[in-house]
Amino acid sequence: MQRPRLIATDLDGTLLRRDGTLSARTVRALRTAVDAGAEVVVVTARPPRFLDVLAAATGLTGTAVCSNGALVYDIAARTVTRSLALPLSTAREVATALSAAAPGLGFAVETGHTFLYEPSYRLLLSGNARSELAVASLTDLWLSDVPIVQLLAHSVRFEADMLLALAENSVGGAAQFTHSGGRGLLEISAPGVTKAATLSALCAERGITAQEVVAFGDMPNDLTILRWAGTAYAMGNAHPSVLSAVPHHTTSNEDDGVARILERLFDGD
């Protein structure tokens, strides 16, 4: 392919190593691409506050599509520039239906700045304690006046693939369901909110076509963007559904899979 105008990359399992860091090789490849005129857009399930920590450690700047497309974030300015919230009534409807389909679920709400969880929700992230706020019951999740960016459902019994199938069968098109590999974790957004929908809108504003985008990802929540981009690569460590759906593969995140492709595209003339 010709040199892309925009590089869209997932973070966990794609750009980042297992320890959450960027390798020196990856940093160098990204800088080479930017120096050549390409824009790098991070497209992640992570909320903006995670990008703040990453930017402080790596110098990462630019635009990020966060929370599976629900937020657009200016990393340098630390500002949300676009938000696509999940309606409260929809969140309550989905939680009720999923509780019936998969008993024992715990629920949490992501606002982009804070994370609210009820007692049955047990998947808390290390290093995130200052942003995690426990509430007394499921009902209390719906009392906050802060818009819901994502509803999260966690099960100690069902794997994420099973939860995804149960959600699609029981709630239909009420919301957008996906997962990013978290054990027993289902990620729920407003209907139509995906990584691809938000990135395509950003590209349209910049006069960039899908054919001018190269994308990288590893999990089901990356599939919309991998199918939309003109050229897409599944990581060597990707979920089986991603490996089967995406014809181009690179090496794993531990083996600098993104950097290897960017070097091929941007090193030398």
Rank of each mutant, 00 (worst) to 15 (best):
L84G: 00
L223I: 05
V146M: 09
E132I: 03
L262S: 01
I148Y: 11
A102M: 09
G184W: 10
L164S: 02
A64H: 13
F158K: 00
P103Q: 06
T44R: 03
R206I: 04
R183K: 12
L30F: 07
G236L: 05
E212F: 10
L124V: 13
M219Q: 15
L105G: 09
T224I: 00
P220S: 12
F158Y: 14
A85F: 02
A38Q: 06
N221A: 09
A201G: 05
P48L: 12
A24T: 08
T250G: 07
R17F: 06
T14C: 05
T111R: 13
L143K: 13
N253W: 07
A85T: 09
G69Y: 09
L11A: 08
C66D: 06
P48V: 10
L116D: 03
L163W: 03
L151C: 07
L86N: 06
L163Q: 00
R206W: 10
V246A: 04
P247S: 12
G20E: 13
P103G: 04
P220Q: 12
A70I: 03
A8Y: 01
G268S: 01
H239M: 10
A64E: 11
G217N: 05
F216C: 06
I225S: 07
D140S: 13
P220D: 11
V109C: 12
H179K: 06
L124Q: 14
G104V: 06
I75C: 09
A167N: 01
N221F: 07
E187M: 04
A97C: 05
C66T: 07
G37N: 09
D255H: 14
R25K: 10
G69L: 11
V149W: 00
T90M: 06
A160F: 04
T250F: 10
S23W: 07
Q211C: 04
G182Y: 09
A101V: 00
A174S: 12
Y117Q: 13
T250K: 07
E187Y: 06
L51P: 01
R18C: 01
V72F: 02
E205F: 05
L84F: 05
A234S: 15
T96D: 09
A134P: 14
A232W: 01
R49G: 00
I261W: 00
R18Q: 12
E39H: 12
P247M: 05
Q150Y: 00
A8R: 02
L105E: 11
A245L: 06
E187V: 08
R25T: 14
G184P: 08
T194V: 08
T90W: 04
S241L: 14
